[in-house]
Nucleic acid binder design. Sequence first.
RNA 1: GCCGCGUUGGUCAAUCGGCUAAGACGCAUCCCUUUCACGGAUGAAUGACGGGUUCGACUCCCGUACGCGGUACCA
Length: 507
Amino acid sequence: MNKKPRLRFAPSPTGGLHLGGVRTALYNYLFAKQNGGDFILRIEDTDQGRFVAGAEQYIIDCLNWCGLIPDEGPHTGGPHHPYRQSERKDLYRQYAEQLVNQGHAYYAFDSTHELEAMRADYKTAENPSPQYNFVLREKMRNSLTLAAEELSRLLQEQQPYVIRIKMPANEEVKFTDMIRGEVSFHTNLVDDKVLLKADGMPTYHLAVVVDDYLMKITHAFRGEEWLSSAPVHILLWKYLGWETEMPQWAHLPLILKPDGHGKLSKRDGDRLGFPVFAMNWKDAATNELMTGFKEIGFLPEAFINMLAMLGWNDGSSQEIFSLNELIEKFLIERVHKGGAKFDYEKAKWFNHEWIKRTGDDMLSNLLIELWKDKKITFDRAFVQKVTGMVKERCVLLNDFWDQSSFFFEMPSTYDFASLRPKWNDAKRNFFKSFNDALHGIDPFDVQSIESLFKDLAASGNIKPGELQLPFRIMLVGGKFGPPVFEIAATIGKAQTQQRIQNALSMI
RNA sequence: GCCGCGUUGGUCAAUCGGCUAAGACGCAUCCCUUUCACGGAUGAAUGACGGGUUCGACUCCCGUACGCGGUACCA
């Protein structure tokens, strides 16, 4: 009765994997895993007939980073191979021909020019975009209007043609969307979509239904932009005789631009200063490199968590979910109908939260990897300690260096401007004697340093508070970082003394 | 234009007819801390509009407005 669910992700090949794409993958993955099913990757590796180099590996890398590992796909193989659309090309024609034979599709020979001319001729103020539909197809050059001998001559001469679906007149196509409930369309208002292109490649419309059928897909979750072509797909399932195996549909709300309106697009990232891709994506056409969430310093857990919440919640006020919790609690029925504007500030908050709750050992491993180009040999235990000390002030992984570089090397710049106004000989003398007294401290720990500092301040009649900022600037270079005495204890006696001396000579 | 889908604070959003309308981000003020954060407290800020139905409507129905999507041999 309860068939094991099989859900697929079939990203567009035309660009990097953007927010909307990853969220679609995520929801498909969550539903499949929640019910013990499979998550399948079907790759669109061609864009208008052209193979997009690197697209497949890029998608797989992104899914891996996010932890959404496909059970079947071009890289794993599997019982339903091939998973690359370019390798499935020959499959589609037979189904298109079958539809022609059954009278549900037809050959159309109209050239691009003829189509343009038709659209220009029939364009009116009330109907700015005339459709190739049940009335206009009578006036075009296709197997429905051409005489039999003319048709066979064209076929004989191998004139290019496309196969279009013959939309029935005066019918209502209804289906139940798992998010939206019952949705219906009138066939008169849907055009005769091209199913098979002149180059023999299928359009999305033919490809989804054929592939979903062959790959035994049980649920199809996709973006709302597909809702208006759903009737074409429903009819195809019916005409091909597979109606009983049709997947359940769910059309996901769109992710909108943070400013203004409209679907979030690839360009918005550059324009508004935040990433829209999961990982760095180099546009092959323009050679432009677009920054990814990974590279800007997001944790995959935070990225996934943030995306999951953009259009769904479990009804409670919980916002932080691990992937496993999401698998457990996700309900497609609770996905919103309306689109959500993407908010980068909130996205960063998710990352901050995840940084705070990720273990220092795991975090420090990521950081050592991130810092592999620095000319410093990092001691794992030391990095781990430092990570714990600074993590609460880092929003992105990339913030860690700014917040902790002084633990590994001498500060390169000093914010002396902040302390000069109140600097005097009394303070200078304090630091001189403090530095000398440091020699005798053993063990060199927070308590000992702090009490020495305060005792000395008291005997010099200076408020310790007034000395802390200078001390901090001597050690880290600026007004930031963990408590000063902890820093001193962490970098050790020699470094502390050296930095005090060094700074004293520069003020 | 037409078709479809939407509409709770600046943003993400809870509510399945009882609302003095949660919570979070961001913002502001304060406490903590003589750094920066974390943490804590407080505050400003919301049901597009008009009709119904109902004892009662943010919740249900109908209009209108607005937004978005689609209207390609793109996905």
